[in-house]
Amino acid sequence: MMESLETGLGWLFLSAFTSATLLPGSSEVLLGVMAKQEQWSMASLLLWATLGNTLGSMTTWWLGWLATFKKKPEDFQGSGEQKALGWLKLHGHWCLLLAWTPVIGDGLCLLAGWLRLSFWRSLVLIGLGKLLRYALVFLLARQIF
């Protein structure tokens, strides 16, 4: 029984991590299913989902940091990248609260690394945004389904 509980949290962590990278993932669905099963505490589910997703985004931040040796953010022509760059330049670190959003969130994290925004401030804001999103998913899963 304990092994299956730990395995479930491991899969949640892995799903959350891959969901925060360019790889596909469905961590919200998995979190919702696990929340409804009521085998895990809210704190455990939110901890592992947020940790995995935040580490995935910080991996993207780190890749952006490394990429500055090859290319500058201004060199990108894609509309998503340019929009994320504009938001980051206008609002700074606070945009990273939106790192959980589909499509644009990855760009925000990548460009935050490229712009060499503070690692620790980025970590805190990305993690906070992701925690709030997962808390909402958890609460909705328990209430609606």
Rank of each mutant, 00 (worst) to 15 (best):
S19L: 00
A20R: 03
A20S: 07
T21F: 00
T21I: 06
L22T: 00
L23R: 06
L23T: 08
G25P: 03
S26M: 03
S26C: 09
S26V: 04
S27T: 01
S27W: 04
E28L: 06
V29I: 12
L30V: 10
L31N: 04
G32L: 06
G32H: 14
G32E: 00
V33H: 02
M34E: 07
M34H: 02
M34V: 03
A35K: 11
A35M: 07
A35R: 13
K36N: 02
K36G: 08
K36T: 08
K36L: 12
K36V: 07
E38A: 13
E38K: 04
Q39A: 14
Q39K: 12
W40A: 04
W40N: 01
W40S: 02
S41M: 05
S41H: 08
S41I: 10
M42V: 08
A43F: 08
A43D: 11
S44L: 13
S44A: 15
L45S: 05
L45C: 10
L45I: 05
L46Y: 12
L46C: 06
L47P: 09
L47K: 08
W48E: 00
W48D: 01
A49C: 10
T50F: 05
T50N: 08
L51V: 14
L51N: 04
L51T: 13
L51K: 08
G52E: 01
G52N: 06
G52W: 08
G52L: 05
N53W: 05
N53G: 06
N53K: 02
N53L: 04
T54R: 05
T54L: 00
L55G: 09
S57G: 11
S57Q: 06
S57C: 02
S57K: 04
M58L: 15
T59K: 13
T59N: 02
T59E: 06
T60L: 15
W61Q: 04
W61A: 05
W61D: 13
W62H: 10
L63C: 09
L63S: 04
G64E: 10
G64D: 08
G64Q: 10
W65M: 06
W65D: 11
L66A: 13
L66Q: 09
L66T: 00
A67L: 15
A67P: 01
F69W: 05
F69D: 05
K70Q: 10
K70H: 10
K70C: 02
K71A: 12
E74W: 09
D75G: 10
F76A: 11
F76I: 10
Q77G: 03
Q77P: 03
G78E: 14
G78T: 15
G78W: 14
